[in-house]
């Protein structure tokens, strides 16, 4: 029985090493080379573009309408900015390349609201120094696995029971 348990734990260790979040590199370039630093330094909050990050389990990527709230008229000579109006003119949606996706193998439940609003965790804890980036990163800035989650949960003294996240 004891040896069975050891074998099981070893097997589990190998499963646990699988990344929880597939930090997949973008298959192509982002439609617009978005400058996070330029926006954040002007005092724009993350939730203006990544709506619902405080209210829902999911966060969103901005649509062209969000960009046009400010950029419907020319603001700079940056060619990337002009792209916004070109996309709008063509009626083409912005197809952002998603860098973070919860791996289906992890079968875990992650809620942005729970972490951002209820837990007061800064975005940079999981998303890295995005606010400093002047160009879109080719892949997720933070690579995290279950150990990453567990160490933070232990530090903040919140539940580490399997079923608190997995389902």
């Amino acid at each position: 029985m004891r040896s069975m348990r050891m074998i099981g734990l070893l097997l589990f260790a190998s499963v646990a090493s699988v990344l929880l979040v597939t930090s997949r590199p973008a298959s192509g370039e982002q439609p617009i080379a978005f400058n996070h630093k330029a926006h954040v330094s002007k005092g724009l909050d993350c939730a203006i573009c990544h709506r619902y990050v405080r209210e829902q389990a999911f966060a969103t990527l901005p649509t062209i309408e969000t960009c046009l709230m400010c950029h419907s008229a020319k603001m700079s000579d940056n060619p990337e900015e002009a792209k916004i109006r070109e996309f709008a003119k063509r009626g083409e949606p912005l197809r952002w390349q998603r860098l973070y996706a919860l791996s289906p193998d992890a079968a875990a439940y992650f809620s942005h609201r729970r972490h951002v609003t209820l837990g007061n965790i800064p975005c940079a804890t999981c998303h890295g120094p995005m606010a400093e980036r002047t160009t879109p990163p080719p892949r997720a800035l933070v690579r995290f696995d279950m150990d990453f989650c567990i160490s933070c949960h232990q530090e903040k003294k919140v539940s580490t029971a399997c079923v608190a996240c997995h389902r």
Binding site: M1, M4, R5, I7, G8, L9, L11, F12, V15, D105, A106, A107, S159, A161, C162, V163, A164, H166, R167
Partner: peptide
């Protein structure tokens, strides 16, 4: 009997199964 602790009982007493842990024994 679960050798990998995939079957777990939560602090609230609910028995759940963590599929990512199950080895199918």
């Amino acid at each position: 009997v679960c050798p990998v602790q995939a079957m777990t009982k939560s602090p609230e007493g609910t028995v759940s199964h963590v599929f990512a842990r199950c080895i199918g024994c």
